[in-house]
Design a protein around this nucleic acid. Structure first.
Lengths: 154, 154
DNA sequence: TACTTAAATAGTAATTATTCTTATTAAGGA
DNA sequence: TCCTTAATAAGAATAATTACTATTTAAGTA
C-alpha cells in the first residue's frame, strides 16, 4: 500500500516548497506528519497519525499533530474526508476522486474516475455562490462486510 | 421559512405511523424534536434544536435530543448533513437533493435538481460494495459572504 | 559559524460535542 | 385503572480537539 520512495521524496519536496512560499518553517514534525498522510491510502485519523509519528519522534505532541494537519489543510495539501463520525480523517491525494464509505466498518475507499469521466455539477449549484470544490460521498456496505454477512448466515 | 401547517401535520402523522411500525412510543419530546427539524430549512444542529424545544418543554434534556435524533436517523426520517465541522447538522427533507456549504459562514443551502436532472454515479462506485446512498457536497463561498467581502473592499 | 528572533513545539489543562448512568416518569396495551 | 417497560431528566463521563505557556529551534543575518 505504500507509494514508492521517489514519489514520496517528491511530495516532501513539494511540502518544502509550499512552506517556504507561505513563510512557514520546515520542521521535522511537519515533514513526518505530512509523510504519513501522503504515504497512506487509509485516510488516517489524527490519532493514527499521532501514534505512527510517535514511533519515530517519541516526544511529538497531539497538539502538534492537530496543528500541523490544520496547516496542511490551509495550504490545500491535505483534505478532510467527509464522514459522519467523530474522528476527522485525512487524504493527501489531490487527484480528483470520490469516496465510498462503508457504514459497517467505516473504511473509506477511493473512487477514481474512468478516463474521460467527469463529475457533473447540479445545474443549480452555481446559484449559491463561488464554488471551491465538489465532494461526492457514496455510502454503503463494502464487499468485505457483505462477505462477512454472507458467511455468518451459512 | 416555515412550511405550512398541513404539511407539518402530515409529517407528524408520518412520525406516529413510523413509531408504531417500529414499536416505539410517540412521546411529546419526539414529536417536538422531529417537528423542529421537519419545519426548519436551516439544517439545525443538536444544540439549536435543544434550545428551541426547551422553549416549549423547559425540562427537556440534551440527552433526549441526541437520543431522539439518533432514533429518527435510524428510522430514515432525518439525515445528517456531511460537514467538516464539530457539530452534526440535520435535515428532514427526503426529497433527493444536494448541499452547498459555505466555508465562511457555515450556512448550508439545499440544491434541488432540475426536472429530468439526475445524479450520476461514478462508474467505479459499484465495485466497492452495495450502495445505500449518494451524497454530493459543494463547498464554496455563498453569495451573502461574497457580498460582504466586496463591501469591505470599498 | 555563531547569534538572534519569532515561529513552532511539548506537555498539560481546558473545552466542546456527544454519550452514558441511574433513578424516575409515562405511553399504551391489558 | 393498572402494569410493564420504554423513554426521560439530570448530571456525570468520555472522546476528540483546541488552548495555554514555558521552552526549543528553524532559518535569516552578522
Amino acid at each position: 500500500m505504500h507509494k514508492n520512495n521517489n514519489v514520496l521524496d517528491e511530495k516532501i519536496e513539494y511540502l518544502r516548497t509550499m512552506c517556504k512560499l507561505k513563510g512557514m518553517r520546515v520542521t521535522p514534525q511537519r515533514v513526518e506528519i505530512y509523510k504519513h498522510v501522503a504515504n497512506s491510502c487509509e485516510h488516517p485519523d489524527a490519532e493514527t497519525i499521532y501514534e505512527s509519528v510517535k514511533e519515530k519522534m517519541p516526544n511529538v505532541s497531539v497538539d502538534t499533530v492537530y496543528r500541523t494537519l490544520a496547516s496542511l489543510e490551509d495550504m490545500d495539501m491535505i483534505f478532510r474526508v467527509d464522514n459522519q463520525l467523530p474522528k476527522a480523517r485525512f487524504d493527501a491525494d489531490k487527484t480528483p476522486h470520490h469516496h465510498f464509505l462503508c457504514v459497517k466498518c467505516n473504511e473509506v475507499y477511493d473512487i477514481f474516475l474512468e478516463p474521460g469521466e467527469k463529475v457533473e455539477l447540479p445545474k443549480n449549484a452555481e446559484r449559491f455562490g463561488e464554488i471551491k470544490d465538489i465532494n461526492v460521498q457514496i455510502r454503503g456496505i463494502c464487499n468485505k462486510c457483505l462477505q462477512e454477512q454472507t458467511n455468518k448466515q451459512n
